[in-house]
């Protein structure tokens, strides 16, 4: 995917030089291996800082809400879907955006690589054709790229941007996968097992709110966890509070979540928070036939209704 870098720079240069946009949002090369930094450039002389490889997992749509200027934005499949959601939710106007689409082959899960390296950080990492190599001290590790993909990328069915003004490469083949095997596994458990499963899942939570803040959908001026009158959820590490946070956070992104995986990627303690959101995604697909961020002129499922919506348990 590094080959996209040149095309991204070219596009950014053209857009800025022709004054089509005021800024371009993309990534610049990170200061440590397997990390890149979201970056905003304002002038042509900065375009060579733009960079692309398989470590651009953070969702750039997160930087769009309420921007007043004209923005060029580099967007992979999931970013583009979140841009669609932002447009639907009036966070940004389509006319303000110039979308540089990136057909994506999945992003690397840094955590998985670190685990494979027994927690030892690499000093150097390189992407080869289909492979990833990391080096530090005596440990020189090369593995299949697919082995290190983020969980959400493995089951991604929208690798190509759904909306764009230009593409930096040929469209890639979309995967035909069953997205919900893990959800079904949990559904098959007994209620008590499910409760315990989630209790264990969120046990290491620090309440740093990185999952919330990395999420492009979380743009409320005041989040419910910060509300004081009433205080919906306590501030301590009490497990009911932590659970309330995760539960309501997940519910808040119902019908909007594109499964971009930014939440899991950001989590410092490796909680698979997508286990909450994917259930909602599955239900919404089954009940209302809706997939978030795919069609630009369809109201999100919780902002509309059909007279004959299923109501299995209403008396």
């Amino acid at each position: 995917m590094r080959a996209y870098t040149g095309r991204i720079r070219e596009a950014a240069k053209r857009l800025l030089a022709e004054n089509r946009v005021d800024v371009v949002i993309g990534f610049r090369k990170g200061t440590i291996p397997l990390m890149n930094e979201p970056y905003l450039i304002k002038s042509v002389d900065q375009v060579n800082q733009l960079y692309w490889d398989s470590n651009c997992g953070i969702n750039l749509a997160n930087y769009l809400p309420k921007r007043p200027d004209r923005v060029g934005i580099v967007a992979k499949g999931c970013d583009s879907r979140n841009i669609v959601v932002h447009i639907l939710e009036n966070q940004i106007k389509r006319e303000q955006l110039y979308i540089i689409g990136v057909p994506c082959k999945g992003m690397l899960d840094r955590r998985r690589i670190m685990a494979e390296r027994n927690g030892r950080e690499p000093l150097f990492a390189e992407e080869l054709e289909h492979k990833v190599r990391t080096v530090r001290y005596e440990l020189d590790l090369t593995r299949d790229r697919n082995y290190f993909l983020q969980d959400n990328c493995r089951i991604c069915t929208h690798r190509n941007p759904v909306i764009y003004d230009e593409l930096v490469g040929d469209l890639v083949e979309e995967q035909q996968v069953d997205r919900y095997t893990d959800v079904r596994k949990i559904e098959a458990m007994s209620a008590e097992e499910r409760w315990e499963h989630f209790e264990k899942l969120i046990e290491p939570c620090l309440r740093c709110y990185a999952c919330r803040n990395a999420c492009p959908l979380c743009y409320c001026p005041t989040c419910f966890v910060d509300e004081a009158r009433p205080q919906w959820v306590g501030k301590s590490l009490d497990k009911t509070d932590t659970r309330t946070f995760h539960f309501l956070r997940a519910f808040h992104v119902a019908g909007r979540c594109t499964d971009c995986g930014a939440c899991e990627r950001a989590c410092p303690v490796g909680i698979q928070v997508r286990q909450f959101t994917k259930k909602m995604e599955k239900d919404i697909k089954e009940l209302y036939g809706y997939e978030a961020g795919v069609i630009a002129d369809e109201r999100p499922p919780l902002d509309t209704y059909r007279p004959g919506d299923p109501e299995p348990f209403f008396k």
Binding site: A191, R194, F276, K279, E311
Partner: peptide
Amino acid sequence: NLYARRKFTLLKNLLDYTGMEPERLHFSW
């Protein structure tokens, strides 16, 4: 109530999914 219907359907499903007993939540018209 039609918006509410969707909201509660999803809410109840998520509560069930995360281990809450379904019989604690009731909805009616």
